[in-house]
């Protein structure tokens, strides 16, 4: 009989070859900017919900005037640890476009739990016209890509420092950014020191705000990460147990075969 171990190692060689491709791709994309120890990377990764909540405050204050999170409803904010009452209070302070009056004018009303988070522009043309021809990204999934993307967002937010002396934008309204592709970005530095006042007393340095809003963006892109990891570990333990059982059964069944 062919030794099973030989075949298994053969199989692993095969799978390993396949793994090679993502490895190359990782090595190629190794970023040139600072890497932060995010709490949400790795298989035990978890969001620091107080940071997500602070990040949401930063988003509302500094980003929401241009960037939407259009696929999220107010009620979804529960998963960042807010109660429905707390969310309701926040929602009431936002105005939502809802229909037209008899003369065709837009009507606004206070938002409720079932509304989607409001979009800053009612259409793309409007968004373009006030942002040097670029449409600000939607933030629902902007944080996809875990740690690497988070580091990138951090780098952009912190990358407005020290424009070279000879920096000249190609276009009116563009500013220098060290890490944005092409080093010119249509967004001015959105964060200012103490631009928000955190309810939990955390000092609102620019870096702190950047970290919090980045955590918030990663969270909007992976809304179930905490649950996914928690359930995943339980499932893994269960399956490992089943694996041992099936192995034992297989051994027993085959014990009389020479």
């Amino acid at each position: 009989m062919v030794k099973p171990i030989k075949n298994v190692s053969f199989l692993f060689c095969f799978l390993f070859t396949c793994l090679f491709i993502p490895l190359i791709s990782y090595a190629q994309n190794k970023p040139a900017y600072k890497q932060y120890p995010w709490s949400f990377t790795g298989i035990f990764g978890n969001y620091d919900l107080s940071s997500v909540q602070r990040g949401y405050m930063v988003y509302r204050k500094a980003c929401a005037s241009c960037h939407s999170v259009q696929y999220m409803r107010y009620a979804d904010l529960q998963q960042m640890g807010l109660t429905l009452d707390q969310i309701d209070k926040i929602a009431k302070t936002d105005q939502i476009l809802d229909g037209k009056d008899a003369s065709g004018k837009d009507l606004y009303r206070a938002a409720t739990l079932v509304d989607y988070l409001p979009a800053p522009y009612s259409n793309q043309l409007m968004a373009k016209s006030v942002n040097a021809g670029k449409v600000p990204l939607d933030f629902s999934r902007y944080g996809m890509g875990m740690g690497q993307q988070a580091d990138y967002i951090m780098a952009i937010l912190m990358g407005y420092q020290n424009p070279p002396a000879d920096f000249k934008p190609d276009q009116e309204g563009m500013v220098y950014n060290q890490y944005f592709p092409g080093h010119q970005i249509a967004m001015r530095s959105p964060l200012t020191k103490d631009g928000v006042k955190y309810a939990d007393g955390t000092p609102a340095t620019i870096e702190q705000q950047a970290k919090d809003v980045t955590t918030f963006l990663s969270w909007t892109a992976h809304p179930h990460l905490i649950e996914r990891h928690r359930i995943g570990i339980m499932v893994m333990i269960y399956v490992a147990f089943i694996a041992i059982l099936t192995l034992l059964v297989k051994r027993k069944v085959w014990s009389n075969v020479k």
Binding site: I43, R228, H229, I231, G232, V235, M236, V239, A243
Partner: peptide, 14 residues
């Protein structure tokens, strides 16, 4: 069961 372990790893963790 081995395949299920792979599935769980991919679906839940990666």
């Amino acid at each position: 069961v081995g395949a299920i372990i792979l599935l769980v790893l991919l679906a839940f963790f990666f």
